[in-house]
């Protein structure tokens, strides 16, 4: 049943999100063209204005696609799980674990796809400008040196893994907050936002305490921070993933309240 749930989740999302994400590719193409013009050498104000507008549109479209993807996925989860469509979803003979996993995997996949496209897009823009890439590589090298030789293959792989898990944890934080919000007799959506900001504040506070504690025991905080960043991210994300998954499952399976 998990495969079927994922198939329908994909079908419900791709028609909007795929074209939206392809917009990044199109805007990247135009952005690269604008950068390649070497605006400093051009006297024609019209061309300069056009190229600047393309770059502004490129940056704007990035934000719109990123925020739009997040809003759409949250809206999709809310309406299909706790809105009218939830009446169908929760009367299907499927395990609640499968429902959560299908939604989280598809949503996380879209966020990762969007993030990957943006990363490639930014790299492409840098590559279009002569001389920028060596500068960027130089900056990354400085960070790697600060990390104390952290530029190994393992660190790279683990950093990507930590990033992927952190995305899953963020998606699950949204599902947990929406699920907690529906327990409220009134203003369910508002309560979901309240839970989100409450948890966000708690996470920030815990993070601050953690780094303050490190500062007390380790004078070279900057080195420690860079050297251990993927480990901290991975462990924290795994912990949050477990907690937010448990909250989502418990409220959906034991405290469902479709009224």
């Amino acid at each position: 049943m998990l495969g079927k749930l994922m198939k329908y989740e994909w079908q419900a999302t791709w028609k909007l999100l795929l074209p939206a994400n392809l917009l990044i590719v199109v805007m990247t193409f135009f952005g690269c063209m604008a950068v390649r013009l070497n605006l400093g050498d051009i006297d024609n104000d019209g061309i300069v204005f056009g190229a600047v507008m393309i770059l502004v549109t490129y940056v704007g479209s990035m934000f719109v696609v990123m925020i739009g993807t997040a809003i759409f996925l949250i809206y999709r989860f809310y309406t299909s799980t706790y809105g009218d469509q939830g009446y169908l979803l929760h009367t299907l003979p499927v395990d609640k674990h499968h429902i959560i996993i299908a939604k989280v995997l598809v949503s996380s996949g879209w966020v990762l796809f969007c993030s990957f496209l943006m990363y490639v897009s930014v790299v492409a823009i840098f590559m279009a400008e002569d001389g920028l890439i060596p500068e960027v590589i130089g900056s990354v090298g400085t960070v790697v040196e600060t990390a104390g030789g952290a530029g190994s293959f393992l660190t790279g792989v683990m950093s990507v893994l930590a990033f992927v898990v952190s995305i899953v944890a963020r998606v699950l934080k949204v599902t947990a907050c929406v699920s907690l919000g529906q327990l409220s007799p009134n203003h369910k959506l508002l309560m979901s936002f309240a839970y989100y900001f409450g948890i966000y504040f708690l996470q920030q506070t815990l993070g601050s305490f953690y780094y303050a504690f490190l500062g007390l025991i380790n004078r070279r905080l900057d080195q420690y921070y860079y050297g251990k960043t993927w480990e901290v991210t991975l462990i924290a994300s795994l912990l949050y993933t477990v907690v937010f998954y448990a909250v989502t499952w418990y409220t959906m399976d034991k405290r469902l309240n479709l009224d």
Partner: peptide, 11 residues
């Protein structure tokens, strides 16, 4: 409400 409980939509 009775129907929703039968369907597992309400606890």
């Amino acid at each position: 409400t009775l129907i929703k409980i039968m369907n597992g939509l309400l606890v």
